[in-house]
């Protein structure tokens, strides 16, 4: 793959990937790290990229998967360290997400946004992904279905469950 082709993709989509990572991880440094991972994966996979699927869809898919991998690896590290000292079967997700540091959150809403993201982070991964792609990326249900490799109906169901869960947690 030519350097020119990769540079073009980077120039056109770096902000998109960075914002997806930022909304998923809510930490500037983590988002930077994962954005790098995404573009390294893009560089490796571009030769085999199937032009039938849209480049944007492919990038969204890689970005979401890399964010999930990043959180999984943090969770694994944390669990290993935790088990070294205290043996317990309790699954704790607290602390997997780094300190809230989202440069896109408006200062006056920062606390409320942080609170909302904390609740969103408690949602199952697929519900969280569907919700974030729908609201922050403004993707249609069909586009989300392409990214998540699901049917449109399945995405609609995920979105409705996500909103329901969100509503319940906000009321508690």
């Amino acid at each position: 793959m030519s350097t020119f082709q990769f540079s073009k993709i980077y120039d056109e989509h770096a902000n998109l990937v960075f914002n997806v990572c930022l909304n998923y991880l809510q930490n500037n440094q983590d988002a930077e790290e994962v954005t790098q991972d995404v573009f390294v994966a893009v560089h490796e996979g571009l030769d085999g990229f199937n032009n039938n699927s849209q480049l944007k869809t492919w990038l969204y898919r890689i970005a979401v998967n890399k964010c999930l991998d990043f959180l999984k690896s943090k969770r694994r590290k944390k669990r290993f360290g935790f088990h070294l000292f205290i043996r317990t079967d309790v699954e704790e997700d607290a602390g997997v997400f780094s300190t809230f540091n989202h440069p896109g959150a408006i200062l006056e809403n920062k606390e409320a946004t942080e609170q909302l993201f904390r609740i969103i982070n408690d949602l199952p991964n697929r519900q969280k992904t569907a919700l974030l792609l729908r609201i922050t990326e403004d993707l249609s249900v069909v586009e989300i279905a392409d990214v998540m490799e699901l049917t449109a109906k399945a995405v609609e169901s995920l979105l409705s469950r996500a909103r329901g869960n969100l509503k319940n947690k906000l009321n508690n």
Binding site: F18, Q36, L116, L132, N171
Partner: peptide, 27 residues
């Protein structure tokens, strides 16, 4: 509705530009 009001906060999140040094790091 409370839920919608809260979700609206997500809509207020501004788009952020990727830092310029990120390109050099990726390369």
């Amino acid at each position: 509705m409370e839920e919608n009001k809260e979700i609206d906060l997500l809509l207020k999140i501004e788009r952020v530009e990727a830092p310029l040094y990120l390109r050099a790091r990726v390369e």
